[in-house]
Design a protein around this nucleic acid. Sequence first.
RNA 1: GCCGAUGUAGCUCAGUGGCAGAGCAACGGUUUCGUAAACCGUAGGUCGUGGGUUCAAAUCCCACCAUCGGCUCCA
Length: 700
Amino acid sequence: MRAMANLIPQPLQRQGASFPLTSNPIIHPITGVYTMPASVEEELNQSVAYTPLQRMRHSAAHVMAEAIQDLFPGARFAIGPAIEDGFYYDMELPRALTPEDFPAIEERMRASVKANHPFVRSKWPREKALEYFREHDQPYKIEIIENLPDEEVGIYQQGPFLDLCRGPHVESTGEIGPIKLMRVAGAYWRGDEHRQMLTRVYGTAWPTQEELDAYLERLEEARKRDHRKLGKDLELFMISEEIGAGLPLWLPKGATVRRLLEEYILKLERDQGYLHVYTPNLAKLDLYKTSGHWEHYHDSMYPPMEMESGEQLVLRPMNCPHHIQIYKAKTRSYRDLPIRIAELGTMYRLEQSGELAGLSRVRAMTLNDAHIFCTREQMLSEFINVVKLIQEVYRVMGFERYSYRLSLRDPNDKEKFEDNETMWQESEAALRQALDMLGLEYYEGIGDAAFYGPKLDVQVANVLGKDETISTVQLDFTLPEKFDLEYIGEDGQAKRPVMIHRGILSTMERFTAFLIENYAGNFPVWLAPVQAMVIPIADDRHADYARHVAERLRATGLRAEVDMRKERMNAKVRDAQLQKIPYMLVVGDKEKEAGAVAVRLRTNENLGAVPLDEFIAIASRLNAERSRDLWPPREGQAQAANGATPAQASEKPAANGHAGKRANAVASSAASTGAGDAQEEQPVSDGQKGGKGKRASKKA
RNA sequence: GCCGAUGUAGCUCAGUGGCAGAGCAACGGUUUCGUAAACCGUAGGUCGUGGGUUCAAAUCCCACCAUCGGCUCCA
């Protein structure tokens, strides 16, 4: 439940369970009475803060439970809250549920909606409720009640169905809009992996059919952007079962993207005074015993390799200890600080098999990692500089929707977090001070800290609107202590430095995955694996000129290829388009004669003939500037950063000659690049702020 | 790791006990073409892996591996 905990407003977790009645009574089965439905206002005062839509979805969850109870006698119910975009219900069922069961459940739900049963609220004395649920073999409800402090518990009833629940609900089942069951999944009771695995059924409900359809379309769009699909289609990376799960291979095009990102961040860091190092991927196990990583994470470390000498080596899960050794390699003076040691270092973590996903969750990953060793006095300014660096990178990448999470320890969890009260108080206070100095708005994530210290996590909304942690800055007073780090102060006395762990691009794997989805595969010019495809119209006449054009582009540092396949130009244009290559340079007799190229952008915009020199000048400039524009804005064109695409705004109606017979292809092409607009200005899609990333940063 | 589903040609998929299929891609040939798929032909599969049931298994059973959707975890 912890992962969910921050995804939804806090009160939503305080859900009651629901419980079925065997008959169809209106009268309370135990007390014989019930209170009249509460007014909406009263409900809102007494229960959780649901929006009307959430209330409807919560009611839909109860109706689903009603249906399942009817179809699967013996079901034991747990909790069933509204969540973003829908609802779920956790329960224990007599047999496994499959999607094939959905139609029957949905049908039964619609019958309940049609019957328009009122939701009737009442209060039961705690003991009565316990007795009732014991009698009806509902252990999860009993456990919930036992954890409630109140002497009375809320009960909701709709038609034949009775629920332990705080509410609120809609007035009657007829108010529930179109519903659809989405998936069935397992979920641990109370989110505890040591407890019973329950069946969770996810559903969604919307006020109108149109909104339901739009939601399903949205999911479909996200599916098209899935980096695993685009990674295959665009030949960016692969995963070989022969090599191993979670061990991706970067294909030439994906490797190009990664290398460009690496060159970009290395230069940026160099300019900021970071010193780049290389350190080995193996280390003695003892190193991680000292750091505490072994204690906290041995379950997700590769098992140690036993040497003949008895020495144990592990594949490193993190490289802070390595950088610490570099710091310790000689006596450091306060004059040397801050020392910023950075590395694109590869780490190995034995992630749980069920967690692996494409490039975004892997077992071998390269971190954009750095450790800053500084004095207490320097700590705040160093921290602030890192945050500014993050903001600069996000500006270049075009991330616009992101938020800051101050990740704090859970003071009650002495296992997970270092047990050092003063350390935590001091470091958390320092972090807050830095955030105040930056004037950042942030929210707090209790229990999200690293074991050695608090951190600032930067959450970027992904295409599904879910927040993902990309960057992180962590304040660490713990490891300097454990490794006995020192520097010599002005007074000649040995002092303890502070460490700042920071990751900006996360891992190269995950960042690339995020970019693929964020751009829907339409990489900006500077990141596009192939920037220009030269397309000769008739290869016997135009091949030489096409090669000449490509040579000229390559000579200026642009990545260009010539499509010499025995295909018609139309097919070459189509394939380049599907590969999302920014520029298609069509060359035929006219262009050859004029020393020009006919420029077609992947936005479908056909710019006509452009002198080769001019094209090179423009493309090179956009490339060097890391612009996200494909072409400079022209006269009479919308200029807003998030406005229409250049293609849509162009005076030439974007080569829509094929709009007739190929309407479908055009529509899907436009849709797949961002709901038909903003192709090159891909906004990170809407996302609630304040959620917790499902895939947190890989930074130590 | 846990719950559920899935795994057939490079890709997308059809095939539910009786001779392994289609489209695209690849390869060969014809076509030299002006902005999203020319035409004809050829070749290509241990049906995820291993066991079992059966006269006969892609199909039924068991185990394992991988992938997908969730749960738990994420230094």
